[in-house]
Amino acid sequence: MKLIVGLGNPGEKYAATRHNVGFHWISRLAEELNVQFKSESKFHGLCTVATQANEQIWLLKPQTYMNASGMAVAAIARFYKITPEQMLVIHDELDLPPGAAKLKFSGGAGGHNGLKDIIAHLATQDFWRLRIGIGHPGNKHAVVDYVLHPPKQDEASLIDEAIQRSLTIWPLIISGDYTAAMHKLHTKPRAL
C-alpha cells in the first residue's frame, strides 16, 4: 500500500457532514503516525508522507470537492508511479448502516460520485476501498441533502466507533495481509 486517500469536501461548512468520514478517518491515521498534512497544489490536496516498514506511504485529502476527487488521486499516483492496486480509498457508504465498516478490493462506484470520478481518472475500478457506513435516508431523492448534513448524535457515535475499529486493522493493511484485515474487521465480536 503506497497511497491512502480519505474522501470528503473541503471547508468548515462540510467538516462535520456524513460525506466527510473519509477525511475524519485519514486525519486520525495521520495523528497515529505523527505526521502533519500540508497543502500541495500540484496534487490538488492536503498531503503528507509517513514511513512504515521502510516504505513511504502517502496520505491524501483531495481539496477538489468530492465530485472531482479523481483529479487529485490521479495527479499523485502519476507523480509517484503508484498503481491503483497500491491505493486505499476511505469513503462514506450509504449501503452500510452507521457503525459498519467493510474493506474490499475493486467494484463499482455504487452511486458515489467521488469513487465514480476516481474510477474515471484511473480508468479502472481495481483499487482498495474502506467503506464506512452512514446509512441511507430511505429515499434516493433525499441522498444529496442527507450526505451533506451532520449525522444525528447516536449515528455519529456509531460512525465514530466504526472509524476507531477500522483503524485497528491498519497494521494488517500496511503489511499487505488484506485477508486477515477483512476477517478482523468483518467479524462481529462475540457477546460474553
Rank of each mutant, 00 (worst) to 15 (best):
M1S: 07
K2H: 10
G6H: 03
L7V: 03
L7T: 03
L7K: 03
G8Y: 11
Y14P: 07
Y14R: 08
A16L: 12
A16P: 01
T17D: 06
T17I: 08
N20I: 04
G22R: 01
V35K: 00
S39V: 13
E40I: 10
C47N: 07
T48N: 02
T48W: 07
T51Q: 12
A53S: 15
N54W: 01
N54P: 01
E55P: 00
W58L: 04
L59M: 07
L59V: 06
L60T: 07
K61R: 14
Y65P: 08
A72Y: 10
A74Y: 10
A75R: 11
R78C: 13
K81L: 13
K81V: 09
I82F: 01
M87L: 07
M87R: 06
I90Y: 02
L94H: 00
D95S: 12
P97I: 05
P98Q: 09
A100H: 10
A101F: 01
L103K: 02
L103S: 01
F105C: 00
F105W: 05
A109H: 13
A109K: 02
G110S: 01
G111A: 02
N113R: 11
N113A: 02
D117P: 03
A120M: 12
H121S: 11
A123M: 07
F127T: 03
W128K: 00
R131V: 00
I134C: 08
P137N: 11
N139Q: 14
N139D: 15
L148V: 09
H149P: 04
P150I: 08
P151W: 03
A156T: 04
L158I: 06
L158Y: 05
I163E: 05
Q164C: 06
L167N: 09
W170R: 07
L172R: 06
G176Q: 08
G176M: 09
A180D: 00
K184C: 06
K184A: 05
H186A: 04
T187H: 02
R190D: 15
